[in-house]
Amino acid sequence: MSLEFAPEPIVEDVARRPARSAGVAGWGAALPATVVPNAAISEEAGVTPEWIVKRTGISERRHLAPGERLDALCAQAGREALAQAGLDGAALDAVLVATSTADDVFPQTAPVVAGMLGADHALNWDVGIACTGFVAGLAQGAALIESGRAENVLLIGADAVSRCIDPSDRGPAALFADGAGAAVLTRGGEGRVGAAVMGSDGASAHFLVASRENGVIRMEGQEVFKHAIARMAESSREVLAREGLAVEDIALVVPHQANGRITTALALRLGLTPEQVVDDIADRGNTSAGTIPLALHRAAGEGRLPERGHVLLVAFGAGFSWGATVLHYGGAA
Rank of each mutant, 00 (worst) to 15 (best):
A114M: 01
A114Q: 03
G115V: 02
M116R: 14
M116Q: 12
L117Y: 09
G118Y: 01
G118L: 05
H121P: 00
L123A: 11
L123H: 03
L123R: 05
N124V: 12
N124P: 08
N124T: 06
N124I: 02
W125L: 15
D126S: 11
V127M: 08
G128K: 15
G128T: 15
A130C: 09
A130M: 04
C131V: 06
G133I: 09
G133T: 13
F134V: 03
F134S: 09
V135S: 01
A136L: 14
A136F: 15
G137C: 11
L138V: 07
G141F: 07
G141M: 13
A143N: 11
A143V: 01
L144P: 05
L144S: 07
L144E: 03
I145P: 00
I145F: 00
I145R: 02
E146V: 03
E146L: 06
S147W: 08
G148T: 03
A150T: 04
E151W: 00
E151K: 15
E151Y: 01
N152W: 10
N152L: 06
V153Y: 10
V153S: 06
L154R: 09
L154W: 05
L155D: 08
L155T: 11
I156E: 04
I156W: 13
G157S: 12
A158G: 12
A158Y: 04
A158D: 10
D159C: 06
A160C: 12
V161A: 14
V161K: 05
S162I: 13
R163F: 04
R163L: 03
C164N: 14
D166L: 07
P167D: 11
P167K: 10
S168K: 15
D169A: 14
R170Y: 00
G171T: 14
G171D: 06
P172Q: 08
A173C: 14
A173W: 02
A174Q: 04
A174W: 01
A174R: 01
L175P: 00
L175I: 04
F176V: 02
D178F: 15
G179S: 05
A180G: 04
A180H: 10
A180E: 04
G181M: 06
A183T: 12
V184N: 01
V184C: 06
V184W: 02
V184T: 04
L185C: 08
L185E: 05
L185K: 10
L185M: 08
L185I: 11
T186H: 03
R187L: 13
G188D: 07
G188W: 07
R192M: 01
G194R: 09
G194W: 07
G194N: 08
G194S: 05
V197H: 05
G199H: 12
G199A: 14
G199V: 09
D201K: 04
D201T: 04
A203H: 13
S204Q: 15
F207E: 02
L208Q: 06
L208P: 00
V209A: 10
A210Y: 05
R212D: 09
R212I: 07
N214E: 11
N214I: 13
N214F: 10
G215M: 08
V216W: 03
V216L: 15
